[in-house]
Design a binder for these strands. Sequence first.
DNA 1: GGTCGAACTCAATGCTCGTAGAGTTCAACG
DNA 2: CGTTGAACTCTACGAGCATTGAGTTCGACC
Lengths: 204, 204
Amino acid sequence: MPRTGRRPGTPGTRQTILDAARRRFATRGYDATSLRAIATDAEVDPALLVHYFGTKEALFVAATGFPALFSDLAARLRAGQVEDPPEAIVRTYLRAVDSDRSRNAILAQVRSAVSNEKAARMLREFLTAQLLSAVAELSGQPDAALRASLVAAQLVGIAMLRHVVRVRPLAGASEDEVVALVVPVVRAYLQPAGGPSPSGKVPA
Amino acid sequence: MPRTGRRPGTPGTRQTILDAARRRFATRGYDATSLRAIATDAEVDPALLVHYFGTKEALFVAATGFPALFSDLAARLRAGQVEDPPEAIVRTYLRAVDSDRSRNAILAQVRSAVSNEKAARMLREFLTAQLLSAVAELSGQPDAALRASLVAAQLVGIAMLRHVVRVRPLAGASEDEVVALVVPVVRAYLQPAGGPSPSGKVPA
DNA sequence: GGTCGAACTCAATGCTCGTAGAGTTCAACG
DNA sequence: CGTTGAACTCTACGAGCATTGAGTTCGACC
């Protein structure tokens, strides 16, 4: 009966730890998540997490690094390769929040930003450097940056009410229902200067 | 040199404790705030908080109970006494978030909801019972409730990016700048059925 | 001016936490 | 088959936590 020392077989342990960490950080945030809880989920000794990652903070970064999804979108927006930016933004975001891995990473970031200054800085830097600047370029208006951050506010708010506070009926709405209502709003925010609704696509 | 026992003079201590608690809960959230930290701020022994409020949870409720502001607004909305609901909603909200006492109460609720299930329930119940139902009544549409929760998402998101993550330029924008951009969006969400923008007030 | 309860503090209990260090077991390569 | 290093666990440290209970000091009323 082996109790200590290296285990026989292939060691997928590192990945198991990352998955457990992402889940835990996603449901309770950085401060409220203990290494011990993650270790229990991964069926491993807490000291092993330290062995692999050094500190709790390093584990957080390793587990919740933002998925490539958004950087891709930002790059394509900048390159002008996106046909309908508002719809692409909303859909990419909602879809990310529906895939298991991305949802956990995003929720972990949002939850942690709220009670931990370092996590808040990570999220802020990601938002401003990666996303907002690309979105802002879409609008030629002088207040473009402010408009872009209001778009971000709408999306972050949706994540909050949908997955954290779980307010109905937003929590249970389908992707398409949300897209139908939110895309026109994003479109309005990002509309280039020069008059309302060039194609009459404002929400009824 | 008095070190223990009752202090001479008027005891404003209870209020001091509530203020300190509101500030602390607002900046770090429920879980990450310790009774000891609040006690230190209030220059008081931690046991005194227990003496007054019984438990940390009861202190949280006492310190962060939602300001009357919103219930008033909801009542007036229901009574049809508000001339321009979208503007009233946005302005009331932004103004609440700018007054010291309300901001701390709101931020404490939002921050805490994120890592504490009980706090999340408090916030959810407040939002749905007090606010969303009143807002939803404004729109005659079948998806009124979903539209109302998207309005709430926009506002909660603004609080998050403005005060928690502090994303620029939203964090530094004036009330009027934000109102100018957000009111039309709220108007679009709440517009009664029957065609886009009856008065051409969609954002440029 | 005595008493009584409210306002306070001290010290301690029993918990959980992040991290350190030393030790054990196995796989891979010579 | 021996060695080496990675993969793992045990035990323990020092700190911080919420809460308790017993004790001290004061204001207010008789």
